[in-house]
């Protein structure tokens, strides 16, 4: 088919306003078949609105989007049988059992009861929910509900899958389980658009990452490309006395090609490698007779991406928007 050569997801200049709020202000996105596109951004950036437009739940005010070769507005009805959606609220019926939930979704896709049930059993098995399949979903843990929600999105084996913050609020173990499930799907050729607030998640799963803010895509690229824009890992030393910062800088400066920053008790060194950095720093500091309360290596975070791309952290952005809104209201 034609769309196997074209992009599985493509959006150009999507615009969507709610009243005076412009949730999407010209969003461009692209994902090749069989890849994962991570959409990264803070709350309110436009991630969920983008997903809702691409899954036909919202009609855009402007722009164009195609998913699996179909126009999201003109071919909306046809498109719905080729996509799967798992949202951030784990949209399963709590009063139905796992198997009833999946069977219902299968029948709403137009399958006969027996076919829907067989598929439900298959999916429960795949997501390690076979034992829990006969219990109402309200007895499930958060991780189990997300797995059931993901299974519901996969009932029709859709070629394109949308996951809106699939791991928000999950414990680390459940998060890793879900990541493995997603990786398996992509291995089978599914195209995935994944929104997330966690750089770590995008880093692990996404082939390409689009960073959104205020309804715009402000950066796009592979995880490595984005990280190089942010800078590498940071070694952070908290000194016992800030008076020792000069001694600390001279002890540590040959560890990095970048200049060492000091701010009060905090000394920051850019390092290329994580391994050994803490030991090395501790050795140097003790040789120089500098006392440290804490030494840590920090990976770049979403905050760092924002800091480097926009010049301020996402929290500041929100505060700025609120201030702006107050001005408008006044």
């Amino acid at each position: 088919m034609a769309f196997s050569e074209e992009l599985a997801i493509s959006a150009q200049g999507l615009v969507k306003s709610f009243g005076d709020v412009r949730a999407l202000d010209g969003v461009d996105l692209a994902a090749a078949p069989g890849t994962v596109l991570g959409v990264l951004g803070p709350n309110g950036a436009g991630k969920t609105t983008s997903v809702r437009v691409l899954t036909t739940l919202l009609t855009p005010d402007g722009g164009e989007a195609r998913v699996a070769g179909l126009d999201v507005v003109k071919d909306a009805a046809k498109l719905r049988s080729r996509i799967g959606l798992a949202g951030q609220y784990a949209a399963v019926d709590e009063n139905l059992t796992g198997i009833e939930n999946l069977t219902m979704v299968g029948r709403l896709y137009g399958n006969k009861r027996a076919v829907a049930k067989r598929r439900a059993v298959e999916l429960l098995e795949r997501f390690s929910l076979t034992e829990a399949g006969g219990r109402p979903a309200k007895t499930y843990s958060g991780g189990m509900r997300r797995r059931l929600d993901l299974a519901a999105a996969l009932v029709a084996s859709p070629p394109v899958l949308f996951l809106d913050e699939p791991t928000t609020g999950l414990d680390p173990r459940s998060r890793i389980d879900l990541w493995e499930a997603i990786e398996e799907l992509v291995g089978d050729g599914t195209t995935v658009l994944l929104t997330t607030q966690y750089l770590e998640e995008a880093d692990r799963l996404a082939d390409r990452i689009a960073v959104v803010d205020h309804g715009h895509v402000i950066a796009e690229g592979t995880a490595d490309e984005l990280k190089s824009r942010v800078g590498g890992m940071r070694l952070e030393v908290t000194l016992t006395h800030c008076a020792a910062s000069f001694a600390a800088i001279s002890a540590l400066e040959s560890m990095s090609e970048e200049p060492v920053h000091a701010d009060g008790e905090l000394v920051v060194v850019q390092v290329a490698e994580r391994s050994g950095a803490i030991m090395e720093a501790a050795r140097r500091l003790s040789q120089a007779g500098v006392g440290a309360d804490d030494i840590a290596v920090r990976r770049p975070t979403l905050d760092d991406v924002f800091l480097s791309l926009t010049g301020h952290a996402p929290a500041d952005e929100e505060a700025a928007v609120e201030a702006e809104l107050e001005l408008v209201v006044a």
Binding site: T56, L57, K78, R80, I83, L85, G87, A91, L108, G110
Partner: peptide, 13 residues
């Protein structure tokens, strides 16, 4: 409130 309406809307139903 639980997002099920979104699920139904995203299905060919």
């Amino acid at each position: 409130t639980k997002g099920l309406i979104d699920r139904f809307r995203s299905l060919p139903t």
